[in-house]
Design a protein around this nucleic acid. Structure first.
Lengths: 154, 154
DNA sequence: AAAAGATAATTGCATTTGCAACCATTTTAT
DNA sequence: ATAAAATGGTTGCAAATGCAATTATCTTTT
């Protein structure tokens, strides 16, 4: 018998996910950036030009079809450009524009404000701890799903 | 300057959310229960007949329109019934069926297996800790969104 | 060098979701 | 007692999302 508090981890993850979507949506609506684009833009601002769409998908665990569409929207809104990689014509080189770079501080501020308010009452040490723990959970989750997939492939 | 690890909490939450959706979808597809119904069914199995749809929505932070649809699907699949509350005709009394009760052990097992694998490498103490911390985060998130709403209402 | 397999990205399709607007009923205020 | 406000739930609509299939290109095998 192991009915413990920890079984609600999944519930809180999903609740938190929905809150964060609502928050991002409110904060970024005026920039024509939705919760579906936000993580891509943040990631691209960190790793400009040095990544494939597929890598973005894997890094964020977002379906590659969704990635295509998110980047299409970001491109239409003028935050990124995509050109075919001449070395590998299947791939695209995704580059952030000046418009995106100018927005970078605001994006980070929104992200930081959210984190700060979210972790109100936590010590700095606890903040680091929970981030580290979540990262570990995500690693485990990836492992679980990958294993399930490989079982299916039998 | 506060660029720390903790700023990625949001990222990991969203990554974990998507993994969990994939997992639940795979595990429960054969029962005709999707990730959108799962949390409701779990919650209803705990608090049968003693809740409104609105309470479910608030508890899980899920839009009430989505709640209506999730319950409609659960009803069609035979896991719950809804009747108008004679005391308050606006409200519905949601009751789980025998079919749902029979499924309860399986649902809990799926939930437990996910949690166990997700927290692989964590001590029991750490498992409790992360659940507690996530609950706190969710409480803070609710607070943030509620405050933002009340500002908009000015 | 050609065929088979893998990889990067896109498109089609169906499903899910949230916001707004709405209806019905109950509660509160006057 | 009636009007106004609040509450529980549903529906319309548009946007987002994931899976599967497809295209194009590159890599590996033979």
């Amino acid at each position: 018998m192991t009915i413990t508090n920890s079984n609600s981890i999944g519930k809180w993850i999903s609740v938190l996910y929905r809150y964060s979507q609502i928050y991002i949506d409110k904060e970024l609506k005026s920039y024509n950036i939705g919760p579906g684009q936000f993580p891509f833009l943040i990631l691209l601002l960190k790793s400009n030009g040095i990544t494939t769409q597929d890598w973005l998908s894997k890094c964020l665990n977002i379906d590659k079809a969704t990635t295509t569409r998110a980047l299409t929207k970001l491109e239409r809104s003028g935050y990124i450009t995509r050109k075919v990689n001449p070395i590998d014509k299947r791939a695209r080189i995704v580059t952030v524009t000046d418009k995106a770079v100018k927005l970078k501080p605001i994006l980070h501020q929104i992200s930081e404000t959210w984190t700060t308010k979210l972790t109100a009452g936590f010590s700095d040490w606890e903040k680091e701890l929970i981030a580290t723990m979540l990262e570990k959970l995500a690693g485990n989750a990836e492992h679980i799903i990958r294993e399930e997939l490989s079982i299916d492939e039998k």
